[in-house]
């Protein structure tokens, strides 16, 4: 189920010039194409009451903007959406929450990224003083997780007290995330999953977020500049953006793609298109252009043998950024 699209290694090495895909089973590739169409016109199906509803019209039935439905996004000319990238994650429904499965590294990455976000929000004064030493230090904050997948990062943030919106382009992921959230009341009451891209969400959301996070997403989108620009629109002045991503260097390819995907079978082959890795310098430049001041850049290293992540100074393979939108 998880290795639907099996990329030819030669194609990979040619760096996308001769990329071609070998579908593991025919029907899925067609599904993927159909789903792409749906995703483009798709409207969130989750309402505050948790009832499913589908509509292609934007409506303002809900008082809380985060639950509002997305409007038809056809008018967005440039999109961050890449169907073949999103398709890689559509069929992972079984594995998002298998802590020993394909997403194992994402689960263990929580130690680093949750600490980074919690400490970052506390230290820059966004987290509310009266809560920071209590059981839910992020109480009262609104966080958007773009490309939330199965909700691996949304859940801990919700437990920390934040109101979290998990946004993902694949409806399948939104469903998995929603079902899983219902298992824990601490999560369920603080999280809402929405299907769509960040551009679509920016069009309908009235309010702004205290923080936007995109973790391991940037390397799957088109136009990272548009992605960041859109995030900038929906972050409050003084709010934070957190990004973790894989770097576009030879080191990244060898480290993340080759080792994780092929040698160790940690991720389904093809999960990372190394042409899409965003180099750190480029990312920092885009952030600056969009009014962000970078607060922290740190490298991360993964040891697949004990499934642990470490902070390292070297940002060649994986790195995390915390930037603040100028007030």
């Amino acid at each position: 189920m998880t290795t639907i699209l099996r990329r030819n290694l030669t194609g990979m090495l040619l760096g996308g010039v001769h990329r071609f895909w070998v579908p593991a089973s025919q029907p899925h590739i067609y599904n993927a194409i159909i789903l792409k169409k749906e995703a483009a016109t798709y409207v969130t199906r989750v309402t505050p009451q948790g009832e499913s509803s589908e509509s292609t019209q934007s409506s303002s039935s809900s008082s809380d903007d985060i639950f509002n439905k997305h409007s038809n996004s056809d008018k967005t000319e440039r999109s961050t959406y890449v169907e073949e990238e999103v398709a890689k994650f559509r069929y992972m429904s079984d594995s998002w929450w298998d802590i020993n499965g394909d997403c194992k590294p994402l689960h263990s990455l929580n130690r680093l990224r949750v600490s980074l976000m919690r400490e970052g929000l506390v230290q820059c004064g966004t987290a509310k003083m009266e809560y920071i030493s209590g059981p839910q230090p992020l109480t009262g904050l609104k966080i958007l997780d773009v490309g939330s997948g199965g909700g691996i990062l949304c859940e801990p943030l919700a437990r920390l007290g934040a109101k979290v919106v998990g946004l993902d382009a694949a409806e399948e992921n939104v469903n998995v995330a929603q079902l899983h959230a219902e298992q824990d009341p601490r999560v369920q009451h603080n999280v809402q999953y929405v299907c769509g891209t960040v551009e679509e969400h920016a069009e309908v959301t009235k309010d702004q977020y205290d923080a936007v996070v995109a973790s391991e997403v940037l390397e799957h989108v088109n136009h990272p500049d548009l992605f960041i620009q859109t995030c900038a629109q929906i972050v409050k002045p003084g709010g934070s953006i957190f990004l973790t991503t894989l770097n576009k260097t030879v080191g990244a390819w060898v480290g993340a793609v080759a080792i994780a995907e092929y040698a160790l079978h940690l991720l389904p082959p093809g999960t990372h298109d190394w042409n899409k890795f965003v180099p750190r310098q480029e990312l920092l430049f885009i952030l600056e252009k969009n009014g962000f001041v970078t607060r922290m850049v740190h490298g991360m290293a993964y040891n697949p043998l004990n499934n642990e992540w470490y902070w390292i100074p070297n940002t060649a393979i994986n790195y995390a950024v915390h930037a603040i939108k100028e007030s």
């Binding site: 929580n110 130690r111 949750v114 919690r118 059981p135 801990p156 919700a158 437990r159 920390l160 824990d184």
Partner: peptide
């Protein structure tokens, strides 16, 4: 306490 701070179950 560490689990709480990491938002873990």
């Amino acid at each position: 306490e560490k689990a709480v701070l990491l938002g873990a179950d």
